[in-house]
Simulated assay, not measured.
Amino acid sequence: MRLFLSDDAGVRELTDGHQPIIRVAAPDLQRARRVRARIRSGPEDLAVILDVTVAVAGDFRSARSAFDAGDSADDTIRYAGTVDGLVGLLGDIESAGVADGVTLIAASDRQDLGRIGRDVLRGLASRDQARAS
């Protein structure tokens, strides 16, 4: 799973992928999977990277408060919860063939996207090690 961050500094990859990418946004995982299937059936070998707006905190209620209640028109997957829950979501996205990676976008300026990205990478590495055992 490739992992990107998108913030004021731009878009940067935390993983080491070499395949050209195309970023997509979708309001739900089912639609994202259909978009990926359509793109992957084309002539180009592209990695499909799904935008995911995240609010991460120690508990769901705190994380959920980062989303503005009036911001329901956002056309990206939205996640509010813990790092462990986000790692689980990304694992599900990968195993279900929804996307080849994700771009994490902070739900608020208070989110430390760099820290979240590093924590997610550690969680994904732990998950992969547990699978290999």
Rank of each mutant, 00 (worst) to 15 (best):
L3V: 03
L5A: 07
S6I: 10
V11R: 15
R12N: 05
E13W: 10
T15K: 05
G17A: 13
H18W: 14
P20W: 13
R23P: 01
V24F: 07
A26D: 01
R31C: 04
R33D: 03
V35N: 07
A37V: 07
I39W: 12
S41I: 08
L46I: 08
A47Q: 03
A47G: 09
D51R: 12
V52H: 02
T53V: 07
A55L: 04
A55I: 03
D59W: 05
S62G: 01
D68N: 13
D68H: 09
G70Y: 13
D71V: 09
A73Q: 12
D74V: 14
R78C: 02
G81H: 05
V83F: 03
G85I: 03
L86I: 05
G91R: 08
G91P: 01
I93Q: 02
S95R: 15
S95L: 13
S95M: 13
S95V: 13
A96T: 02
A99D: 04
A99C: 08
D100V: 08
D100T: 04
T103M: 11
L104F: 06
A106I: 10
D109T: 04
L113A: 02
G117S: 02
R122P: 00
R122T: 08
Q129P: 00
Q129D: 11
Q129T: 11
A130E: 14
A132L: 14
S133I: 13
